[in-house]
Nucleic acid binder design. Structure first.
Length: 397
DNA sequence: CCTCCACAGGAAGCGCAGGAGT
DNA sequence: ACTCCTGCGCTTCCTGTGGAGG
């Protein structure tokens, strides 16, 4: 028996782990039937050769926005048959400018576009050409708020509609920031917001149903205790109702069980998975932090271990609370150690702000008990874990 | 009560990179 | 291909502020 055989013959509680992936589109989409139907109603005019209304979809992460639109896309492609209509999905995190988006859409029609070097006017003309053959183009802009020149893009696209005799271009925008509407030019806002749709976060009960559905396909029967499902749903709905988070929790819990060669995922595994997921997230944020932020965080962690020189609560040895000034000095030392020029204290304050926004530290204004007006700093995560990863990143050991 | 401490945080400006316009 | 412009990361300078200390 080879090692591979051994691994492959090992008992597993997974049946198909890909079902748990955030990109997986299930056959039945629970609790989004209404939205699915509404979007299809809007798009159905494209199948009749008329331009559909533009649409904006809102909702926090993991509320099924992308999933629902992907589903609509599949059905649309099925239904269109010989009708001149097409649907284009674009992830605006990658294609984040008017130029790139136009290029992306048009390269399906004009192969030469693969080679760069065409001006915007050329792209625009091509777009009008394509649509003027009578084609209805539906463009899905996922994470639409990432587009740098959205006003210009909307203007270009709506304008092109006027120039075509037949055919048309319509937009489905997906965003998770409600506030992004305000940053739009009033003119493009009114044309973009012909229809608005909001995806509410899932409730605990809904999450439970969704999890059950996925579990059925992802695991062997009976692998997940119902108390585990309930807990995962409860934790998630309390946090933010992000279905992806719930799936991640279950996945992680199952991995733990698998590693320990057990056969059933219980609620304690979910609890452990939650801690692990949280740690993963903080370590990931620390790893992607710019160098100077890491140095500041290192200073905070290092001082947290040794204790503040100046700030003590009565009767305690080490409160984990630090003063802004001493952290800055420690930060300067850390910079020296890694042969980097320390930034000014003014900018160091901005670093502290950033770290707080990321939840890595908490700051409070110093009240009484401290001379002068300063900031008290406390490290969020466990200092040892932070030190380990930062030492590796900053000093290579 | 006044003064000083130890900062907070706004304003102005600088050098640079990358993108837009020509 | 070239310049021009803009945004970013940052420094320098400055005024403001709540409590400690005398």
């Amino acid at each position: 028996m080879t090692s591979f055989d051994k691994i492959l013959s090992e008992k597993t509680i997974f049946r198909d782990a890909s079902v748990l992936s955030p990109h997986y589109v299930p056959k039945d989409l629970y609790f989004r039937e209404q939205q699915l139907h509404d979007i299809m109603t809007i798009l159905s005019s494209a199948l009749k050769g008329q331009k559909p209304r533009n649409l904006i979809i809102y909702g926090k992460t993991g509320t099924g926005k992308t999933c629902t639109t992907k589903k609509v896309m599949d059905d649309f492609i099925q239904a269109k048959k010989e009708i001149r209509a097409s649907i284009h999905y674009i992830n605006c995190r990658i294609y984040n400018s008017r130029y790139r988006i136009l290029q992306r859409i048009l390269k399906d029609y004009v192969p030469e576009l693969e080679k760069a070097g065409f001006g915007l006017p050329f792209l625009y003309e091509k777009l009008v050409d394509v649509a003027s053959t009578g084609e209805q183009l539906v463009i899905i802009l996922d994470e639409i708020d990432m587009i740098k020149d959205l006003d210009d893009l909307v203007y270009t696209l709506t304008r092109s509609n006027d120039e075509m005799k037949r055919g048309g271009v319509s937009i489905i925008g997906i965003s998770n920031r409600l506030s992004f509407k305000d940053s739009l030019d009033p003119r493009s806002r009114s044309s973009l917001y012909e229809t608005e749709m909001i995806f509410q976060p899932y409730t605990a009960e809904q999450l439970r149903k969704i999890l059950e559905q996925r579990i059925h396909d992802a695991f062997v029967p009976g692998a997940i205790d119902s108390s585990a499902i309930n807990l995962a749903a409860a934790i998630t709905s309390q946090e933010n109702g992000d279905a992806r988070y719930a799936l991640k929790l279950l996945n992680k819990a199952a991995e733990i069980v698998q590693q320990e060669k057990r056969e059933k995922v219980s609620d304690t595994d979910v609890e452990a998975a939650r801690k692990k997921v949280e740690l993963d997230i903080t370590l990931e944020t620390i790893n992607t932090l710019p160098e100077m932020h890491q140095l500041v965080l290192y200073a905070v962690a290092n001082l947290t271990n040794s204790g503040s020189k100046y700030y003590r609560l009565e009767g305690t040895e080490n409160t984990g609370i630090l003063l802004s000034g001493e952290v800055y000095e420690e930060y300067e030392r850390a910079c020296k150690l890694s042969r980097k020029r320390p930034r000014s204290s003014r900018w160091y304050k901005e670093y502290l702000n950033d770290l707080e926004v990321l939840g890595l530290i908490t700051t409070t204004p110093s009240g009484k008990g401290v001379r002068g007006q300063t900031t008290l700093i406390r490290l969020g995560p466990n200092p040892e874990q932070v030190m380990t990863i930062l030492k590796k990143n900053l000093f290579g050991n």
